[in-house]
Design a protein around this nucleic acid. Structure first.
Lengths: 342, 342
DNA sequence: TTGTAAGCGTTATCAA
DNA sequence: TTGATAACGCTTACAA
């Protein structure tokens, strides 16, 4: 059997409450006694049972991170940063991937009860949830990379993301200024209501504002039955477009991984980047730099996204009041995939 | 306050034990009563408190996955598969990254007590641990991608990995047969005692068996102060080698990410792949296909690694007896980065 | 088939 | 400063 607080108490000839005081840094304890207890704990290799603690304590210090959809490099980096922040604050980090088609809020509600969460981080996911489901979320939460969940006046929450519409607009306009008029959009799933849609809208708006007629054929939705936002998806969709002999001079993919897949399809068709087709992505993952040619992209500030999300979450856990979120600026990084002079 | 089992019992005019029987699928319960209870649970939105359950139950169904060192695409894919397996079996998945320089076994021991783990999965990590520290591991564990932990007769454990030595030997020999005699090894950290070392040894052995003198200058250890096994590390080390005007015709990187970094450095130096330098990697991540040119690599069977590890772990949790591990064969995938005809 | 009650390992309250 | 003890929410003998 595992060693418990009782064993420690027995060993030191003190009551369990005294041991508890020692391990929890209570003020009213004799330093001498405490020292002895800590010594015994060391010797016995005692580690408090978390379940018992959580059962008793009101403050079960665990934070869940729910990642919606398949996790890729971008999310992984974000998660890694978040995990660090959580551990630094001595909270327990609990990660769960949630299926593309599942309702992350329902899962969060159940998880909160089951694990007595203190806070939740939502990564990715849809933007709109009903008031009813949201009001069931009794702990503070932050949405990261997705601006917010819609009707959430009653919740303690905050959100941290770039303005997907604006950044997408920025990239499209950049391509237009590079002289492109026929820009393929490697876009979201059809009927997407989330960040993918925002990016699509930014593209459309930029074209319009620059008096370029929107050609629906240039909008290529993500392939079904292929992982969303993946290299493979970009590859498949681009192959299709090339096979159709679609007329275009540039590709704007709404994620870097899609962009990489598209590049491969283009190379396999015997074309050059950027001479035949310019290619740009979105997210700013490291791969874009290392690809040959390096790929133009919008860099999302991952570190800032992670730290400010967590800062807000911890603040809300303390104050039980929502804090204002932040819209971060993305950075357009121009590289050789859209500019032969680089 | 959260709704508890008592609330459900009260609502149904039954005892808590009856409710417990209902939620735990005990046979001795009136189906009618059970139905009513389930109905009430639904209505009250009741979710059992995990901590209380775990405290009472002997079988706290959680499995921890410890990832050593920074996590990259390769590990992420593996972890995702493992998470799926764990959830399928209705276990709780608990992920923790452990620092490159920390002792993962010590962490596992503490975690086991704290969270009452039923099993552990070690990903990456060093190969040798002392008998004493290992004997403290009271729950079954599997090591995945690292052959084993050395002295572990007393543990309930198993291991799943490719033979790093052999696969590395295979790749080196392949490059030799392609006509290369001066092959740069983008190798492990200096003093590495883990898989990196195995791969280095495989390289050395292949050269020797093919009567090629080993030139120490061709062995490039990983850069310190840069994330290990990362694109950046390969990039930096390759830049260095090129600046030295090192004489070589091929590069064998002991990870795909290193290989990609190396490719970039080569391109930036104005050289061609594979015409000037052939490049090969190790692991078989998707990026190697999408890179231009596609990169020759050794594919590790991620899916099989994950499923067989977990199968073994579950079996050991049941039987409390070690099961034999498996050494998987890697697959050499020849691509354009080493063969201009592809 | 159901209810009663003990106990899992902690922390917190109260009294000493 | 310390100790005894109730309680946290659940499972499980055992009794009914």
């Amino acid at each position: 059997m595992e060693v418990t607080i009782k064993d420690v108490a027995r060993r030191c000839n003190v009551a369990v409450s005294t041991v508890s005081r020692a391990i929890n840094n209570h003020p009213d304890i004799n330093p001498q006694t405490k020292a002895e207890i800590m010594q015994a704990i060391e010797e016995l290799n005692y580690v408090p049972n978390n379940s018992a603690r959580n059962l008793k304590r009101s403050d079960n210090k665990t934070i869940a991170v729910l990642v919606k959809g398949i996790s890729n490099q971008f999310f992984n980096k974000l998660v890694t940063e978040i995990e660090k922040e959580i551990r630094t604050k001595k909270y327990t980090f609990f990660l769960q991937h949630v299926d593309e088609h599942a309702n992350e809020v329902d899962i969060a509600v159940a998880l909160t009860k089951e694990k007595r969460l203190r806070g939740i981080v939502f990564l990715g996911g849809y933007e709109y949830h009903t008031k009813e489901s949201l009001s069931q979320l009794t702990v503070p939460f932050v949405t990261c990379t997705t601006s917010d969940f819609g009707n959430n006046e009653e919740c303690v929450c905050s959100s941290y993301a770039v303005d997907d519409y604006k950044e997408s607009y920025k990239m499209t306009e950049y391509l237009i200024r590079q002289g492109h008029k026929r820009i393929v959009l490697l876009g979201p799933m059809e009927h997407d209501e989330s960040i993918g849609r925002r990016r699509l809208e930014g593209y459309q708006a930029a074209l319009k504002d620059n008096h370029i007629d929107l050609d629906e054929k240039l909008i290529r939705y993500m392939a079904k039955n292929v992982v969303t936002y993946s290299m493979r998806n970009g590859y498949v969709v681009m192959q299709e477009a090339l096979k159709e002999k679609l007329d275009f001079t540039a590709v704007f993919a709404i994620s870097d991984l899609l962009a990489i897949g598209a590049c491969k399809a283009i190379f396999e068709a015997g074309k050059k980047i950027p001479e035949d087709y310019a290619v740009a992505g979105f997210d700013g993952i490291d791969e874009t730099f290392y690809y040959e040619p390096s790929i133009t992209t919008i860099r999302q500030p991952i570190k800032e996204l992670a730290t400010s999300s967590m800062q807000a979450l911890f603040r809300m856990i303390k104050s039980k009041e929502s804090v204002p979120g932040i819209i971060f600026a993305g950075e357009l990084i121009e590289r050789a995939s859209t500019n032969p002079n680089l």
